[in-house]
């Protein structure tokens, strides 16, 4: 991991010094343990701020598209790179203006799960290979990282960046899964009432802060439908119907585009597993169109295309 950080800093410094990019977007250490934050640096000296660890759960593609027209470099894990691909396909970034510093991803840890295990405020966090050394004021534990991976990382089959200009570190081995969607299967197996109840409970704590939307690289519309007032698609308050409508519609806007990067769940202050919505649509995209988002810049997502002979068995 340390050599990887070293290389990120070197490459970033070099790119800035030579003026090949105006800015490098990466991760920096936060002010408390396990909290990393996105950072945009523009000088060689600042490259030393860049870091990388199993706590870099946010998706940096989200920040890249906000720098339209500038030459930038982005530190990208597997999922970030897939979202960069989506951004290129959807005209949010020009490939020629983008330098991708690819990082083979070891998997990100679930901060909520570790916090729950430790019980108190975490004061220290270190990684030694697959071992996490976590301390609180009065305790210190060695945890096996594989037991504390984020749910999406534990099911990830694209840890290595799919598109990059340079790769820092050796490619990691991709896992083969017999079933990539056990959680969706479980929900699908419920009765219609059971499913409804599941989603009712899922969203009952939502405070409509839109952190999930803001963290999501797919949500780049100048005016989101929830903020629109003419026509007003969704009510602004906490009415349950409006809350659910927001989640349903957002999920549908992500259909065939979501890379399951987990940024939405990472960002949610209420601990809502928003991915229950998006993953069902990811599974459908896989089953109906053999499609996984963000793997190629040559093809648009299936719902972005129309052909007169599209299957239309649903119209009966």
């Amino acid at each position: 991991m340390d050599t990887c950080i070293q290389k990120i800093r070197e490459i970033a410094g070099d790119l800035l010094e030579k003026g090949e990019v105006e800015r490098v977007i990466g991760f920096a250490e936060g002010s408390i343990p396990m909290a990393t934050s996105p950072v945009a640096i523009s000088t060689k000296e600042d490259a030393q701020k860049l870091c990388f660890s199993s706590t870099c759960g946010l998706n940096l593609a989200n920040y890249a598209s906000k720098e339209k027209g500038k030459k930038i470099a982005v530190v990208a894990k597997g999922c970030d790179s897939r979202n960069l691909v989506t951004h290129i396909v959807e005209n949010q970034i020009d490939r020629d203006n983008l330098y991708i510093i690819g990082v083979p991803c070891p998997g990100m840890v679930d901060k909520f799960k570790i916090a729950a295990e430790m019980g108190g405020e975490i004061t220290g966090f270190e990684e030694a290979g697959d071992t996490l050394i976590v301390s609180t004021v009065d305790d210190k534990k060695e945890l096996n990282k594989q037991d504390y991976l984020r749910h999406n990382c534990s099911l990830c089959t694209h840890k290595n960046p799919v598109l990059f200009d340079v790769l820092v570190g050796e490619e990691v081995e991709e896992q083969q899964l017999d079933n990539a969607y056990p959680d969706v299967d479980a929900i699908e197996a419920l009765t219609a009432d059971g499913r409804w109840k599941h989603f009712e409970e899922l969203t009952q704590n939502c405070i409509r802060c839109y952190a999930c939307r803001n963290a999501c690289p797919l949500c780049y519309c100048p005016t989101c439908f929830v903020d629109e007032s003419g026509p007003q698609w969704v009510g602004k308050g906490q009415d349950k119907t409006d809350v659910d409508t927001f989640h349903f519609l957002r999920a549908f806007h992500c259909a065939g585009r979501c890379t399951d990067c987990g940024a939405c769940v990472e960002a949610c202050p209420m601990g809502i597993n928003v991915r229950d919505f998006t993953r069902k649509l990811n599974k459908d995209a896989q089953d109906m169109f053999g499609w996984e988002a963000g793997l190629t810049i040559d093809k648009r997502p299936p719902l972005d295309a129309y052909s007169p002979d599209d299957p239309n068995d649903f119209i009966k």
Binding site: E90, N91, Q92, Y220, P222, T223
Partner: peptide
């Protein structure tokens, strides 16, 4: 055009090539 995100779905999806940038 104020609201357009330039994502190009309309360009891709139109059977008649009517939308462009």
């Amino acid at each position: 055009q104020e609201k357009c995100s330039q994502c190009g779905v309309c360009v891709s999806i139109c059977p008649y090539n009517a939308p462009g940038f």
